[in-house]
Write a protein that binds this DNA or RNA. Structure first.
Lengths: 144, 144
DNA sequence: GAACAATAGTTTCAATTGAAACTAATTTCA
DNA sequence: TGAAATTAGTTTCAATTGAAACTATTGTTC
């Protein structure tokens, strides 16, 4: 039984979560960077737009756990690199509708199988039931 | 069954991990900041030194998943705030042995129960077996 | 319909972080 | 021994991030 006056970092859940995320995101970020020259925020924007084409930056933020500043910056980079198209919304000229350009779609088409394969490699470390528990537990921990 | 040409971010394991870690670390970081004026790197250094007194900065790094630059910065802040003592190692004058000062021990004594209580609140969201699976799964995902 | 509040998105400025270079001390080995 | 390599820890400089302020447009209310 653990000493209640002391904390053992390797068994401390928040630490362990952070270490796992660092490892998982770090490896993935390196591949996005090397193979597609994308950061994780840029990838998230593309992932959302691949799934939900023609939505506003705000809607991207809502679907990607990013705030509007992060989205604005990632969108600016993606547009600069030609991976996104932006058109003004006629009915509300504050909004801009975003979508993947041809080049963006081409990258998306190639990045999805890579990301899926990476995720499969992660799941391969767990049994089926463990994977289900993990996903549920992460949802529980994400709640405010 | 999911469309294989598209990724649904909320079901994508690396994303879900990152969101959970953001939530868990964010809430905890706020409490460290508000109640103790500590950042997470500073807390990690203190946690390691509370558990293993009188070790070098390098050993702190090895036990906290931080690199030597992060440790160096956190240690500098903690010393500036009087929470750490540092003394030169006689047998190897490159090394400096670190330990919690009286003020550091006082904070440590108060922060440990808070951190434990927070962790208990997290575990309360899960069943006992779920918690065990989660901890094992995080260890699996952390491996290179 | 004019004033005020709210929303979409961007920019600015400071703080944090990362990568590389740096200093100082120790170890290796010809 | 003494030159070269290694190790501990710090510093520097650029890139990234966060918080707050900002612009432009739309919605609300009197």
């Amino acid at each position: 039984m653990p000493d209640p006056d002391v904390i053992d970092l390797p068994n401390f859940l928040p630490y362990r979560l952070a270490v796992a995320t660092d490892a998982v995101s770090g490896r993935l970020a390196r591949r996005y960077r090397e193979e597609f020259d994308l950061s994780i925020p840029e990838w998230r924007v593309m992932a959302v737009l691949g799934r939900y084409p023609d939505i506003s930056a705000n809607e991207v933020a809502a679907r990607s756990a990013m705030d509007k500043v992060q989205v604005s910056r990632a969108v600016a980079l993606l547009i600069r690199n030609g991976h996104l198209d932006r058109r003004a919304d006629d009915t509300d000229r504050r909004r801009t509708m975003l979508s993947l350009s041809d080049s963006g779609q081409e990258i998306y088409r190639r990045i999805v199988p890579m990301a899926r394969a990476y995720e499969q490699d992660l799941f391969a470390r767990l049994s089926g039931p463990e994977a289900e528990v993990l996903m549920r537990a992460l949802a529980q921990l994400s709640q405010p």
